[in-house]
Design a protein around this nucleic acid. Sequence first.
DNA 1: CTGAAAGCGCTTACAG
DNA 2: CTGAAAGCGCTTACAG
Lengths: 325, 325
Amino acid sequence: MGRGRRTPRQTDIARIAGVSQATVSVVLGGNRTGVRLSERTRLRVLEAAEQLGYVPDPVATRLASSRDNLIGVYRFAFPAEAYYPILAGVEAEAATLGKDLIMFTASSAERDHLGIRRTRLADCCLFLGHEAPAEPVRALAASGFPIVYIGHRPELGDVVPYVGGDYATASADVVTRLVRAGHRRIRYLSSGCADREQGVLAGAARHGLVVPTSDLASATLLTWAREGVTALIVTSALYPAVDRALRSAGLSVPADFSLAVLGTPHPEVSGFEEPRRALGQEAVRLLADLLDPAGEPGAPHRLLPCPPVPGKTIAEVREGHIHGL
Amino acid sequence: MGRGRRTPRQTDIARIAGVSQATVSVVLGGNRTGVRLSERTRLRVLEAAEQLGYVPDPVATRLASSRDNLIGVYRFAFPAEAYYPILAGVEAEAATLGKDLIMFTASSAERDHLGIRRTRLADCCLFLGHEAPAEPVRALAASGFPIVYIGHRPELGDVVPYVGGDYATASADVVTRLVRAGHRRIRYLSSGCADREQGVLAGAARHGLVVPTSDLASATLLTWAREGVTALIVTSALYPAVDRALRSAGLSVPADFSLAVLGTPHPEVSGFEEPRRALGQEAVRLLADLLDPAGEPGAPHRLLPCPPVPGKTIAEVREGHIHGL
DNA sequence: CTGAAAGCGCTTACAG
DNA sequence: CTGAAAGCGCTTACAG
């Protein structure tokens, strides 16, 4: 065991090589300032470093240079499976840029949001998930530390750059798909996803056809069927409840109702996809742009298209009659 | 955007409060050295810190104090699902000790094992998975940096402390369970897991009954059945292949053969459990002990018991005849 | 061409 | 009771 063996520093190398510590730093740093250096000195330093098994102290390096080529990723807990595609995207893009990743996880013991601050061990940081307390994140961003949120959190205001899916557009497109399929009487079951809701209402305004509601009792569904409603739009969160309500009303999809979901609860259900992997990649790119002084000013956000999922729950309606796909 | 706003440091607080930077440090550090401090000064400092939204720089803190209350967790890639229980154990125990976690991931761009070295941003580090290159890990441990490997990697020699399952004992117990169930002719299908193999052979030596082999052709299985072999022992890795071979030979478990697996491919299969969560917890405890100067010297390892999984694939044998459970 | 100095933002002995 | 100094291990201007 090397318990007693002190880890070697640049001064140790300097002593052996017979040069100053600063020269050691220049040599080991690849001499990027283009200082003139005798080859002999260079080799002596390199040899001594090798001999001692020198490894730079990342903490000192970071303090002195204020860059460590590290991208932080902050999550409130170890990432759930749903985050994997995002993380894969992050990893791929980070590798492309030659950056390493470092993940921060708030422990349950976290009182004073120290975890969020600790984030500054890296050059910059990505934030994932909506559990992180908003205020410390906002403060961090306001202090000039480059961060990018993956997913939009309106509570953060516009000081925090983010990437997200363009759910508004995708939701409006869902309305359009239904209208194209011939639907005229459509109910939208709202559950408070601001951007999706805005999209649906925008689509609705364009076609004047969608009625928002929050009632999903089986009895209501039967009434709608009688009134000639042919399609339902629901959020992913509401999908299971609606599915149950339809079953208990004895109604089937898409025979009695066409069903469009603002998300992808299941590949057979018509809706749209969250571009998870692309979100991860784009987040890293945005972060890189923020680090670059020539990059975009302000707190930019980037919205990524959400590809439609055709699914099997939208039927064609012709002359008031529902036809199978 | 606070682009221009410099993040406040202790000197800024000192200027406002009219004290020295060192005093600020003492006040904010909770005055753990027990320096006498006038309450007035203390409040002035706290107020100025609050007003400026001061947040300590973790890098500087770590460099100056050489402790940052952070436990590193190193993995070669984002952890696969199988690691979740381990990570949950790590997280729980870290929270108990009031330590935060920081995860290091080697990017694909990793040439010179910088990722492993970067580990020193934390006070100490846990290593997970056998993909990490052995040499840099060994060097890190030899330099006196406290690390603990989760899982035993014999290539690392004995400089690296580790926690692992006691697979040797659990494997020997598997043999004993078969013997207790009346089995006398047992075949062990070896696949090169050193500790498990050693356990099986130790168990075998005790009972003089197990014949190791590496042949798992269907024909061989039929021959064994004819010879009166009543039980097979296989590793988890081999289980699918053996299962296929048995099927294609038209043999069924446990009617024709009892089957014991050195692991848990499926809860219905008799074998033993890897104590994943406990491994995570114990690893953190060992790390804490290593950090404590009064703790164990050398490179200790701790082996955790692997609880038996009863399963349904071991039948009783009485007077040479196989009976159902 | 090379070395000595200052500084990154903190903590921790040590003087007054 | 409080402040000034030294130092953590590096990088990066700046003198010789």
